[in-house]
Simulated scan of single mutants.
Amino acid sequence: MSGKDKLFQKAKVAVRSTFDDEELDMELNDLIIAARDDLRVFGLVEKAKSSETVDSSLITQAILLYVKANWGYDNPDAARFGTLYQQLKDKLSVSTQFLQGDAYEI
């Protein structure tokens, strides 16, 4: 599969996956892209949209929490990870450091 997001391997580890299936790889990659889109729509850094730029560690953590919350159908921890993602997204949204258009140090 080509076009994997730069966080793909980290996400694969985060969901504790050892699969080698192209369709599941695409699903995992799509979740990463959805997380980036959600952060961007929420008004957070435009850099969250691009898989070519370097993310801050907090943006990376938010993306991985989103993936963990949405991976699998019978994930008993989905609600907990979803809550953690929302809490981190809320904190980032009140920080001028992470609002679109502002530069930040990594």
Rank of each mutant, 00 (worst) to 15 (best):
S2M: 08
S2D: 12
S2K: 08
S2E: 12
G3F: 14
G3M: 04
K4S: 09
D5T: 01
D5F: 09
K6T: 13
F8N: 03
Q9D: 12
Q9G: 02
K10H: 07
K10P: 02
A11M: 08
A11I: 08
A11H: 02
A11Q: 09
A14N: 01
R16P: 04
S17D: 11
F19A: 12
D20Q: 14
D20R: 12
D21N: 03
D21F: 09
E22H: 10
E22T: 00
E22K: 13
E22W: 04
D25A: 10
D25Y: 00
M26N: 06
M26G: 05
E27K: 15
D30Y: 08
L31S: 04
L31C: 00
I32L: 11
I32H: 09
A34C: 03
A34W: 12
A34F: 04
A34Y: 04
D37Y: 09
D37G: 05
D37K: 14
D38Q: 09
D38G: 03
L39V: 03
L39Y: 00
L39D: 01
R40Y: 14
R40A: 11
R40I: 09
R40M: 07
F42T: 01
F42N: 07
G43V: 13
L44D: 08
L44T: 10
L44A: 07
L44P: 02
V45R: 06
E46M: 14
K47Y: 13
A48R: 00
S50H: 06
S50M: 07
S51L: 10
S51E: 05
E52A: 10
E52C: 03
T53N: 13
D55C: 12
D55V: 12
S56T: 11
S57F: 10
I59A: 12
Q61C: 03
Q61A: 09
Q61W: 07
A62T: 07
I63G: 02
L65V: 07
Y66Q: 01
Y66V: 03
V67E: 01
K68A: 11
A69M: 04
A69I: 04
A69T: 11
N70Y: 01
N70R: 14
N70T: 00
N70F: 05
W71E: 08
G72V: 12
G72T: 06
G72I: 06
Y73G: 00
D74T: 06
D74V: 03
D74Q: 13
N75A: 08
P76R: 15
P76L: 06
R80T: 05
F81N: 03
G82E: 08
G82H: 08
G82V: 09
T83F: 01
L84H: 10
L84S: 05
L84Q: 05
Y85D: 03
Y85F: 15
Y85E: 05
Y85S: 08
Q86K: 14
Q87E: 15
Q87G: 07
Q87H: 09
Q87S: 04
Q87L: 13
L88R: 12
L88K: 06
K91V: 06
K91F: 08
